[in-house]
């Protein structure tokens, strides 16, 4: 079970209009794995994530999530896929007019027949799991950046997804908060067996959480590295990958 690919990306090309941002993207995500998507600013890693969660249509190729191709999925099939995934956006994207608890409870109210009291308990459970139970009745604007990101993760967890997509979870956070967030990811992965796909460029968190990393590059517009972060750092033949992982500027001569 652990080695079964839960997400399969095949020959994917993404872009806007006639501008190709990434092409020939091929990779699998195995169930239970923590995969990070890396790349410099503007390399298209967030774009890749947005395609993987179906927000944008790819130029070509397929993205299969747990057996369903989301490029062609429609109607009920599409909704079924959405119930298997959870997404936490970069700035949290919490609904500002609702309390944190209502943010988490929203999908439970819309998609399940659970009674009100059950939803309340579940929402509080999810908030407790990310350490935010005490802030349940606060508004998003009253929370700090790190708390908002954790609340966003709790909201993404509401329907017990199999796969959780995180867009730059540690961007803009201090190292301690960022490390706490990494710990949370590891804990959720260990205890719930959730598969994580994380877009990031924070080196410490990559080494702390990632089982595997893939790196996309703006120049070659495709994946330039795929492997364990440590191996990529020490053994990669690609100079840019080594630079990235060692945080160094080397002159790359042709």
């Amino acid at each position: 079970m652990a080695d079964q690919p839960i997400v399969q990306v095949k020959d994917l090309a993404v872009g806007y209009g006639s501008t190709v941002i990434l092409k020939d993207i091929n990779f699998d995500v195995r169930a239970g794995e923590i995969l990070t998507i890396l790349g410099g600013s503007g390399s298209g890693k967030s774009t890749l994530l947005k395609h993987m969660i179906g927000l944008h249509r790819p130029l070509s190729g397929s993205i299969v999530i747990d057996g369903t191709d989301i490029v062609t999925a429609q109607g009920q099939q599409w909704l079924d896929v959405l119930r298997k995934i959870g997404v936490a956006y970069q700035s949290g994207a919490l609904f500002g007019s609702m309390t944190i608890l209502s943010n988490v409870a929203l999908v439970l109210e819309e998609f399940t027949d659970l009674p009100r009291e059950a939803i309340e308990v579940i929402a509080q459970m999810k908030l407790k799991a990310v350490g935010l139970q005490a802030a349940a009745y606060k508004m998003p604007s009253e929370l700090s950046g790190g708390m908002r990101k954790r609340a966003a993760i709790a909201r993404a967890l509401a329907l017990d997804p199999k796969i959780l997509f995180l867009d730059e979870p540690s961007a803009g956070l201090d190292p301690i908060t960022s490390a706490q967030l990494d710990e949370l990811v590891l804990e959720l992965s260990r205890s719930l067996g959730i598969t994580f796909v994380i877009v990031t460029h924070e080196l410490p968190s990559i080494f702390a959480v990632a089982d595997r990393a893939i790196m996309v590059d703006r120049e070659s517009k495709t994946i330039v590295a795929d492997g364990r972060p440590k191996d990529l750092r020490d053994k990669s033949e690609h100079p840019m990958v080594r630079q990235f992982f060692n945080r160094r500027l080397e002159k790359v001569d042709a």
């Binding site: 509080q124 459970m125 999810k126 139970q133 959720l188 260990r190 205890s191 719930l192």
Partner: peptide, 19 residues
């Protein structure tokens, strides 16, 4: 056991009440 882990993660000892 796998559900026990879930329980440990999610267990709440009390519900926070609205103000």
């Amino acid at each position: 056991p796998q559900f026990r882990q879930l329980m440990a993660l999610f267990e709440i000892d009390h519900q926070v009440l609205p103000p």
